[in-house]
Nucleic acid binder design. Structure first.
Length: 921
RNA sequence: GCCCGCUUAGCUCAGCGGUAGAGCGCCUGCCUUACAAGCAGGAUGUCGUCGGUUCGAAUCCGGCAGCGGGCACCA
C-alpha cells in the first residue's frame, strides 16, 4: 500500500484474503507451549458438520477472536483451538434422507459403507466450514484442529466411558426413554421439546369386573389403552375409596386390571380416575413401580403397534388411535370427546412426537458429577458472564436426571462394550453379560477370564454393542480431549488447561457447558474453564432466532462478500454491548443488504481514508522515522488528542478484558470518527500544509503534527485490531512500511501514557468545540454560503475561556471560515452594541456574528427566541429545584453548586437573548 | 405453575440515581485538494403503566400490562 496507489475507497476482499494467507503461512497463531507468557486458552465451540455456518457462528467467532486477539496483544501465550463436531444424529438424519432420495437405505448399504459415506460427507462439510472459519479471520492454530470423531477424541471417549463404568457412574438398564421413531433412536431429555398441540380428551368407561358399573377415565392417547395395567385414584378421594383393590375389565383387551390408590392422581381433575400405562408414560411408569404393576409394551420402535396390541397390531400409532376410538365407540365405551390443548413431547431432530418407550439403554449417573459442579460454583467456578446465567446452570444441575447416552445410530463413537453372546445363544438379549473395555483385545481378555474357564464348554464369542454414544458425550470432553487427555503428560494440557474462557450461546448451557463441567470434574478434578461468557442469539429482522431449520438463516459469506469480514465482525460485536442480550441483525432479504453492516463498512472506509490522509501528509516518513513528539512542542489540539488517546487506550483495554466488547467497539468508533477524523485531522491540516517557503518554526510545528498524527493512528490501529484485524493489519503495514513477515497481530498493546491524561484540558477542548459549533450554527441560520467569510466575536467574562479562544484563534478561523476572530470581555463588547448581529450562547460564552446588512432579521429573531425559550425552561427547572429546602440541605454540595452555576448561566443567557431581541425592535 | 430477560427518538439499540444519547432513516446546505461509503447544520422522546424509596428516578424497590425466553407439567 503506497500513497500513489491508494484508491479512495477500501476494498476488503483482496486485503482480507491476503492477510489470512500471510498469517497462516507464517504460523502467526501457532503458540508454543514452552514459550513464555501467561497462558490464555480458548477451545472454540466446534460447529456441527451439518453443512455450513450461519450467522450465529459468525457472531460467536467474532466475539472469541476479538478476545483472543486482544489477549495476544497483551503478551499472553495464546492458544485458540479450532475444530468441528460430528453431530451424530443430525448428520445421520441428513444422510438417511439422501439415501432415501436415492431409493436406498443405510440397512441396504450396511454399516461399513454407510460410515464411509458419512466420512465423505464430513470431509466435504468440514472443509466448507473450515473455509468459512478462515474467511472470518479466525486467529486459531489450524495445526491443532480437531474433530470429535478423530483418533485422539475417540481415545478420550473410550477412556472416559471405561472409567465412568468402572466407577459405577455408567450403567445399563431397562427404563422408559424418549424414543424418536423418526431417527429410530433413543434421545435424551434435552433433545425433547414440549409443544402445545390441539388434541382431544377422550372419556372412556371401564367396566368394573364385578359388573357393578363403570369408572370413567380420560386420555389424550387412546392407543395406549391397550397397554393399561391399572386405573389409579387418589387415596383420599371418598368417591372411590371402597373401590380400591377391586378390578376392572379393560375394554377391547379383556384384561383384568386393578384399581390402585396413588397420590399422583389429582382428584380435582376430570373424573379423578387415571388409566395407567406404565410402559408408555413416565408418570404411569412411576405409578407402576410403586404398585408393582406389569409393564406391557404395545408399540414397536418404528411407531407401529406390536403383537401385544392384538387386532391393532401393525397399525401406525396415529392410525391405531383412530381405530381404538372407533372400536371403543362401537362397543359403547366412549363417553365423550372434548377438544383439548396440551403439551406433547417432540423430538428436536426428528420433528415428530417422541414415544416414551421401555428400552434397554446406557445411562450416566449424573448426580455425583453434578454435585461436584455445584460445589465448584459456590466459589464462582466457573464464573459466568453475565452472572445471571449461573443460576440457570445451577438450577439445572440441581435435581438433574440421569443421562441416556446410547443412541441407535451408526455415525458416532461406538460404545466400548462387548456382549458375551456365547452365553445367550449367539444373540444379544437384555440378559447377555457384557464387558466394557478399551479395545476388543482387552474385552476378550476380560471375557475369557470371566466366561472362558473350565465349566464352559463353548468358546467365548464377543459382539460389540452396535449402538453409538450421544454426541454430547464427546463434546463434554472437548476442553481436555483436544489438549491431549487422557495423556496427562501432554504439553498442551499442562500449559493450557484449564482453559481461560468458554464463549457460547445460552441455548447450550445444559447440553454442553454443564456436560463439560461434569466430565471435567470427573476426569481432571478441575472445572474446564475459568470464565463462561454467555452471549445471546442472532435474531432475524422479525426477531426470530436464526436457524437452519427455520429457514431464516443468513449466510455470513453473503455479507462478507458485500461488506467485508471486518465490517461484519465489527457490526456484530458492536451490537452486543455486553449484556448478553440477543442481537437483531437488520437485513433486507431481497437485496442481501444490511444497514448495520453497511455502517461498519463505512467505518472501515473512514479509517482507510484517515490513513490515506496521513500517508499523503507525512512527507514520506514513517512513524519510526518521525519518532515521538517533543512534549514541549505540543499544541493544544495535540495535547487534547493525546489525552483522549490515552483514555481510549485505558478504557478499551478494560472493556476488552472484561467482556465489554460492544462498549469497546462503540468507544473506538466514536474516538476514531468523531474525535480523530472530525476534529483532530481538520485541526492539523493547516499545520501540515504550511505553504510556500515556510518558516523554521512552521516546519518544526509541521513535524510535531506529523508525529502526533502518526502516533495516534498507529495506536488506534492496535486498539482496533481485535475487532477489525485485516483492515488494521493492512493500514499498519501501510504506515510502517514493515515487511509482511511482521504482523500487527503480534505487536504489543501500547503502553498507557498516564502523563497525557488531562481532564481539564479535555473539558476546555469540549468548550472550544461547542463554540465552533455555535458559530457554524449561526452561519447556517444566517444562510451564509460555506465559502463566504464572516467575522466572529466571542464575548466572555471568563479569562481562562478567553485565553483558550485566543490560543485557538487560528483553528477557529480555519474551521469556521472566519474573516476575523475577536475575543472580547463584556465591557469591551458594550462598545459594539447596537450593531446588528446574529447571537448565540453556549455556557458562559456569547457568540456574535456582526453581519450588518447581511442578516436575515427573521432568522436572527427566531434564533434568539429559541435560545430564550430554552434558557427559560432551564431556569424554571433549576429555580424549582433550588427552592426546595431539602435539596440544599441533603444533596451533595457539589451538586448544589453545579446547579447554582447552571442557573446563573441560564439567567445570563436569557438576559442576553432578551436584550438582543429588544435591540432588534 | 416456577424462573429469567425486555419495554427509551420512525427503526435497531446504548445509558442504569443529578434531569436523555448513538447508528440508520428524515429535513436544509455543501463534490471545502482523506473520505459523497463523505462534510456542516437541523428536527424528533409525558424513557410501557401505577405506586413506593429519595432533595432528586429512564436509572433503585413493588404491583400491573405487553413481548420474548428457559424449566416443569394433570390423565
Amino acid at each position: 500500500m503506497t500513497e500513489a496507489s491508494l484508491p479512495k475507497t477500501y476494498d476488503p476482499a483482496g486485503t482480507e484474503s491476503r492477510w489470512q494467507q500471510a498469517w497462516e503461512q507464517a504460523g502467526a497463531f501457532h503458540p508454543d507451549p514452552n514459550a513464555p507468557g501467561e497462558p490464555f486458552a480458548v477451545v472454540i465451540p466446534p460447529p456441527n458438520v451439518t453443512g455450513s455456518l450461519h450467522m450465529g457462528h459468525a457472531f460467536n467467532t467474532a466475539l472469541i477472536d476479538t478476545i483472543v486477539r486482544f489477549q495476544r496483544l497483551q503478551g499472553k501465550n495464546v492458544l485458540c483451538l479450532p475444530g468441528t463436531d460430528h453431530a451424530s444424529i443430525a448428520v445421520q438424519t441428513i444422510l438417511e434422507k439422501q439415501l432415501k432420495a436415492e431409493g436406498t437405505s443405510k440397512e441396504t448399504l450396511g454399516r461399513e459403507a454407510f460410515l464411509e459415506r458419512a466420512w465423505a460427507w464430513k470431509a466435504e462439510s468440514g472443509g466448507t466450514i473450515v473455509g468459512q472459519l478462515r474467511r472470518l479471520g479466525y486467529s486459531v492454530d489450524w495445526r491443532r484442529e480437531r474433530f470429535t470423531l478423530d483418533a485422539g477424541c475417540s481415545e478420550a471417549v473410550i477412556e472416559a466411558f471405561v472409567r465412568l463404568h468402572e466407577q459405577g457412574l455408567i450403567y445399563r438398564g431397562e427404563y422408559l426413554v424418549n424414543w424418536c421413531p423418526a431417527s429410530g433412536s433413543a434421545v435424551s431429555d434435552l433433545e425433547v421439546e414440549m409443544k402445545e398441540v390441539d388434541g382431544h380428551l377422550w372419556h372412556f368407561r371401564y367396566p368394573l369386573s364385578s359388573g357393578a358399573g363403570f369408572l370413567e377415565v380420560a386420555t389424550t392417547r387412546p392407543e395406549t389403552l391397550l397397554g393399561d395395567t391399572a386405573v389409579a385414584v387418589n387415596p383420599k378421594d371418598p368417591r372411590y375409596a371402597d373401590l380400591v383393590g377391586q378390578s376392572l375389565t379393560l375394554p377391547l383387551v379383556g384384561r383384568e386390571i386393578p384399581i390402585v390408590a396413588d397420590d399422583h392422581v389429582d382428584a380435582e381433575f376430570g373424573t379423578g380416575c387415571v388409566k395407567v400405562t406404565p410402559a408408555h408414560d413416565p408418570n404411569d411408569f412411576a405409578i407402576g413401580q410403586r404398585h408393582d404393576l406389569p409393564l406391557i409394551t404395545v408399540m414397536a420402535k418404528d411407531g407401529t403397534m406390536n403383537a401385544a396390541a392384538g387386532r391393532f397390531a401393525g397399525l401406525d400409532r396415529f392410525e391405531a388411535r383412530k381405530a381404538v376410538v372407533a372400536a371403543m365407540e362401537a362397543e359403547g365405551f366412549l363417553v365423550k370427546v372434548e377438544p383439548y390443548r396440551h403439551s406433547v413431547p417432540f423430538s428436536d431432530r426428528g420433528k415428530v412426537p417422541v414415544e416414551p418407550l421401555l428400552s434397554t439403554q446406557w445411562f450416566v449417573r449424573t448426580e455425583p458429577l453434578a454435585a461436584r459442579c455445584r460445589e465448584a460454583l459456590e466459589q464462582a467456578d466457573p464464573r459466568f458472564v453475565p452472572e445471571r446465567w449461573s443460576k440457570v446452570y445451577r438450577d439445572w444441575l440441581t435435581g438433574i436426571r440421569d443421562w441416556c447416552i446410547s443412541r441407535q445410530l451408526w455415525w458416532g463413537h461406538r460404545i466400548p462394550a462387548w456382549f458375551v453372546v456365547s452365553e445367550t445363544g449367539g444373540t444379544i438379549t437384555d440378559s447377555t453379560p457384557y464387558v466394557v473395555a478399551r479395545s476388543e483385545a482387552e474385552a476378550r481378555e476380560k471375557a475369557e477370564a470371566q466366561f472362558g474357564g473350565g465349566t464352559h464348554a463353548h468358546p467365548v464369542v464377543l459382539e460389540q454393542d452396535p449402538d453409538a454414544l450421544d454426541t454430547w458425550f464427546s463434546s463434554g470432553l472437548w476442553p481436555f480431549s483436544t489438549l491431549g487427555w487422557p495423556n496427562t503428560d501432554a504439553a498442551d494440557l499442562a500449559r493450557w488447561y484449564p482453559t481461560s474462557v468458554l464463549v457460547t450461546g445460552f441455548d447450550i448451557i445444559f447440553f454442553w457447558v454443564a456436560r463439560m463441567t461434569m466430565m471435567a470434574g470427573a476426569f481432571t478434578g478441575q472445572m474446564p474453564f475459568r470464565d463462561v461468557y454467555i452471549h445471546g442469539l442472532v435474531r432475524d429482522e422479525n426477531n426470530r432466532k436464526m436457524s437452519k431449520s427455520a429457514g431464516n438463516g443468513i449466510d455470513p459469506l453473503l455479507l462478507i462478500d458485500r461488506y467485508g469480514t471486518d465490517a461484519l465482525r465489527f457490526a456484530l460485536v458492536r451490537e452486543v454491548a455486553g449484556a448478553g442480550q440477543d442481537i437483531r441483525l437488520d437485513y433486507d432479504r431481497k437485496s442481501d443488504t444490511s444497514a448495520t453492516v453497511e455502517a461498519s463498512r463505512n467505518f472501515a472506509n473512514k479509517l482507510w481514508n484517515a490513513t490515506r490522509f496521513a500517508l499523503m501528509n507525512l512527507g514520506g516518513e514513517t512513524p519510526a522515522s518521525l519518532g515521538e513528539p517533543d512534549p514541549a512542542a505540543l499544541q493544544l489540539a495535540d495535547r487534547w488528542i493525546l489525552s483522549r488517546l490515552a483514555r481510549v487506550n485505558r478504557d478499551s483495554a478494560e472493556r476488552y478484558g472484561s467482556y465489554g466488547l460492544g462498549e469497546a467497539a462503540k468507544g473506538l468508533y466514536e474516538f476514531a470518527w468523531n474525535e480523530v477524523c472530525d476534529w483532530y485531522l481538520e485541526l492539523i491540516k493547516r499545520r501540515l500544509n504550511p505553504g510556500e517557503s515556510p518558516s523554521a518554526a512552521a516546519l518544526a510545528d509541521q513535524r510535531t503534527a506529523r508525529q502526533v498524527l502518526a502516533k495516534v493512528l498507529m495506536q488506534l490501529l492496535v486498539l482496533l485490531h481485535p475487532l477489525m484485524p485485516h483492515l488494521s493489519e493492512e493500514l499498519w503495514h501501510g504506515l510502517t512500511g514493515e515487511p509482511e513477515a511482521t504482523f500487527l497481530a503480534l505487536q504489543s498493546w501500547p503502553a498507557l501514557d498516564e502523563a497525557a491524561l488531562n481532564d481539564q484540558l479535555e473539558a476546555s477542548f469540549a468548550e472550544l468545540i461547542e463554540a465552533i459549533r455555535v458559530v457554524r450554527n449561526l452561519r447556517a441560520v444566517a444562510g451564509l454560503k460555506p465559502a463566504q467569510p464572516a467575522p466572529v466575536h466571542f464575548v466572555t467574562g471568563r479569562t481562562d475561556l478567553a485565553a483558550l479562544l485566543r490560543e485557538a484563534t487560528p483553528d477557529i478561523t480555519a474551521l469556521t471560515r472566519a474573516e476575523s476572530v475577536a475575543v472580547l470581555n463584556p465591557a469591551a463588547a458594550e462598545a459594539s452594541r447596537g450593531q446588528r448581529a446574529l447571537a448565540g450562547v453556549c455556557g458562559e460564552l456569547q457568540v456574535l456574528l456582526p453581519l450588518e446588512g447581511l442578516v436575515d432579521l427573521a432568522a436572527l429573531r427566531s434564533r434568539l427566541e429559541k435560545d430564550l425559550a430554552k434558557a427559560t425552561k432551564e431556569i424554571t427547572g433549576l429555580t424549582g429545584r433550588l427552592a426546595n429546602p431539602n435539596f440544599a440541605g441533603k444533596a451533595p454540595p457539589e451538586v448544589v453548586a453545579e446547579c447554582r452555576a447552571n442557573l446563573a448561566e441560564a439567567e445570563a443567557q436569557a438576559e442576553l437573548a432578551r436584550t438582543r431581541l429588544v435591540e432588534l425592535g
